[in-house]
Design a binder for these strands. Structure first.
Length: 794
DNA sequence: ATAGGGTTAG
């Protein structure tokens, strides 16, 4: 019986090790798995000291990834060879502690060179250089053992992860390898090339090249290593030169070069190389397809991408599920990015093997297209979520305006003990900014520092924006100042922070400083600058920067830049110049342009142009309520009440729904509450009742001399946001009042409200003992010395 | 039984 088992198992093992990844072997192994278990048991029962049998079984289990069965067997019959198998299997699966436990389970005297090699390689895979070196040292120090080619190869790959690796370091190791005499294999040289290429110094490729030139024989990996090394250093041109030189060696070099182009954003070149591979009838494998599909997806080559898909279908490559996986993932990305999420989902559903990347890809497709419900569905069904899954979902919610959901998810994440990455923190911080939840945002800032994410640009940039939106400009500035590597996003965020709060001059100064420090401004920078000018009323400066954008920086102004400049002119009463500007625009006015014109006409009382702009807007966006309101206000401002009423009627006739909004009202000198503009809306009833309640309460306190009502366009969601977000900080008035919906609000003292934006406010906080500025997160007006920066206040 | 390279999601 044991003998029979042994023969059968050897056959199995031979079959499996011939092609461990081919479909037939894996299905073969799967089919026989039940048999294995029985054989294993009987083998152990019938042949107590039978190391060979145990060994074969363990190897077999390792090949079929049944590590728990292999581990069980090892515990019953520990031997160094079995340990080797298990160490490498666990390392391959990314479980370093498990791998190390098998190495440790073998007494030092019984460890052989191969077991040491497996352990060194395990540490190398996990990027742990120091312990790998320690294992290598213990191998060298042993009397009976000597390191071989494998030992050196694995050691060299581990050493590559040492921080601050220099060329002299590498040369030292190089010498040691040569002296030992053991390292003469091609793999050792290839590893040496990779090691030199990892050094930052500019002469490193030269040293690597020397190794390559001195090699007696080179194989495909020699060239590939050079190509990959150059790609990692960001030198695609040098990679290309090496690639050309290696011409004739097929397969991997091509894949490495295509992937190198993709990583450097040179998608056309990547596709061109793929085309050459097809023309020269070179074998295309899953790596080729994956890289070229990614090139197509990233560059909008959707037609090319589809033809690659066609090629895959035509060639019917005999991919095992493991190989088909990345290809399918790349295909999903292609279809998601070209807006065909349904196709993407179909591929997803048909995949035999899925991983986190698959789910994340479909998740990102849904998030990008704004289908947050479907994204959440995928997210909740994911068997395994990683950092990225959480991050995409959190930032997806923020992007979709669902900041509360974002924060809820963030809290759920911490409850599930999942570790947020810096991007996830950035998302949560952005959510705080949207909600004006300064206290929560500060807390997150504290966590960031504790976790050592201070150097993260994404988190830092999110902090700047969050503090700015919560009115804490000095905090925003502090973050900006202590950030170790500010990028253009950081500059833009800080410029915008200053601009939002009316520090127009400072914003412009910061912009100039940015340019002086050699950071190239982008279109966002100019948008920010124009906004800053807008809030500070710096019309001529706005014009100057607009001009220099084209002239000095070669950035073609988009409709958003024009719209902002027109808005700026309109506010400054220079509607005539705005008209001239439209005539010089290289494109037809868009809806945002007409909107800026219309709002300028309202302030300037230009009824004729306003009506024309409104007509254009009615054609483009007939259901947009803002146009009707603006036009009607333009008429009423000019005293043409009949026309104003006509516009309101038009709006009703066309079935345009007015978003219910709420506003602040001033009661007497010092008490302020909410009111809604459209009393027919159910939302209005709620607020109305609320106000009644407030009124009654205030009358009791003797606070109601007269009541002013301001109408304005704030959505119900926004109102809720403001109510819930600010309530904690606003608790200085008469105590909390509760809305039927459960949101709480506090009545304040010394509040000032801008009649234009209706949202900026200032009050004396008894709790803090100083003046605090609170603002609506979406509107950018600045309150200074009791006046709003738009100059329109009461 | 162990080594060196190429893969997809933001």
């Amino acid at each position: 019986m044991p003998y029979q088992c042994s023969v059968l198992l050897r056959r199995l093992a031979e079959h499996a090790s011939l092609s461990p990844s081919s479909a037939s072997a894996s299905s073969f192994l799967r089919a026989l798995r039940c048999l294995h278990a029985r054989l294993a048991t009987s083998a152990l029962l019938h042949a107590p000291p039978h190391p060979h049998l145990t060994l074969r079984l363990i190897h077999l289990y390792t090949l079929s990834s049944d590590l728990s069965a292999a581990t069980l067997l090892f515990r019953a019959k520990p031997c160094p060879i079995a340990a080797t198998s298990l160490v490498s299997a666990h390392a391959a699966a990314g479980r370093l502690p498990a791998a190390a436990s098998f190495f440790d389970a073998v007494p030092p005297r019984r460890r052989d060179t191969v077991l040491h090699n497996a352990m060194i390689s395990a540490y190398a895979r996990a990027c742990h250089a120091a312990p790998a070196v320690a294992v290598f040292r213990s191998l060298s120090a042993s009397d009976s053992l000597r390191p071989d080619d494998y030992s050196f190869t694995a050691l060299l790959s581990a050493v590559g992860y040492l921080p601050g690796l220099s060329v002299p370091n590498c040369a030292q190791i190089h010498c040691a390898v040569l002296k030992s005499g053991a390292g003469a294999a091609m793999s050792v040289f290839n590893a040496l090339i990779a090691l030199y290429m990892k050094c930052e110094a500019s002469e490193a490729p030269w040293a690597a090249r020397k190794v390559l030139d001195e090699m007696p024989t080179k194989d495909e990996l020699t060239w590939t290593t050079m190509v990959v090394g150059y790609v990692r250093r960001g030198d695609v041109n040098a990679a290309r030169t090496v690639f050309e030189e290696a011409d004739g060696k097929v397969d991997v070099v091509w894949n490495a070069m295509i992937s190198g182009y993709v990583q450097s954003g040179m998608y056309e070149e990547a596709f061109e190389l793929f085309r050459r591979m097809v023309l020269e009838k070179l074998p295309l494998d899953e790596f080729t397809f994956t890289s070229v599909l990614s090139a197509c997806a990233n560059n909008g080559f959707f037609v090319h991408g589809k033809s690659v898909h066609g090629q895959i279908i035509r060639l019917q490559p005999n991919f095992v599920p493991e190989s088909a996986l990345p290809v399918n993932n790349a295909l999903m990305t292609l279809y998601s990015k070209s807006g065909k999420i349904a196709v993407s989902k179909k591929i997803f559903d048909n995949m035999k093997l899925k991983d986190v990347v698959s789910s994340n890809t479909i998740l990102s497709g849904y998030v990008e297209s704004g289908c947050l419900d479907k994204a959440a569905e995928v997210f909740n069904e994911m068997p395994y979520k990683n950092e990225l899954s959480w991050m995409m979902m959190v930032s997806g919610y923020v992007h979709g305006g669902l900041s509360e959901d974002a924060l809820k998810l963030f809290n759920q994440m911490r409850a599930e003990d999942a570790k947020p990455c810096d991007y996830t923190y950035a998302g949560a911080i952005a959510a705080c900014g949207e909600l004006g939840a300064l206290k929560h945002g500060k807390q997150l800032h504290g966590h960031l520092v504790q976790l050592g994410f201070e150097a993260s640009n994404s988190a830092g940039n999110a902090l700047i924006t969050m503090y700015a939106k919560c009115g804490a400009v000095s905090d925003a500035h502090l973050v900006f100042l202590v950030m170790p590597n500010v990028d253009s996003v950081s500059w833009n965020a800080m410029i915008s922070a200053l601009g939002q709060h009316g520090h127009g001059r400072e914003a412009l100064e910061l912009f100039d400083q940015m340019v002086a420090e050699g950071i190239y401004p982008d279109r966002i920078s100019f948008l920010t600058v124009l906004t800053a000018c807008n809030h500070a009323g710096l019309v001529d400066e706005g014009f100057q920067y607009f001009e220099s954008m084209k002239r000095e920086f070669g950035i073609i102004p988009g409709e958003d830049h024009y719209a902002r400049l027109i808005d700026l002119l309109g506010r400054a009463g220079r509607i005539g110049e705005a008209k001239d500007l439209i005539k010089t625009m290289p494109f037809e006015p868009t809806s945002s342009i007409w909107e800026a014109i219309l709002s300028g006409c309202r302030t300037n009382g230009d009824i004729e142009l306003g009506a024309y702009a409104a007509d254009q807007l009615f054609k483009m966006t007939p259901q947009h309520d803002g146009t009707y309101i603006l036009l009607s206000n333009t008429y009423s401002a000019a005293g043409r009440w009949v026309d104003a009423a006509r516009v309101r009627k038009l709006m009703r006739d066309r079935g345009v729904k007015k978003e219910p909004g709420c506003s602040w009202i001033e009661v007497g000198n010092n008490v302020h509450v909410f009111l809604v503009s459209d009393t027919n809306h159910p939302e209005a009833q709620e607020i109305y009742q609320f106000l009644e309640m407030v009124g009654a309460k205030m009358r009791k306190l003797g606070y109601v001399p007269d009541t002013k009502v301001v109408l304005h366009d704030m959505g119900p969601h926004q109102k809720e946001q403001i109510l819930s977000a600010h309530s904690e900080r606003l608790a200085v008035g008469f105590g909390l009042l509760k809305l039927p919906s459960g949101a709480t609000v506090t009545v304040l003292k010394n509040l000032r409200i801008c009649s234009d934006c209706h949202t900026a406010m200032m009050f004396m906080s008894k709790a803090v003992g100083r003046e605090i500025v609170v603002r609506d997160v979406r509107r950018f007006h600045h309150f200074k010395d009791g006046e709003c920066s738009c100059g329109n206040y009461w």
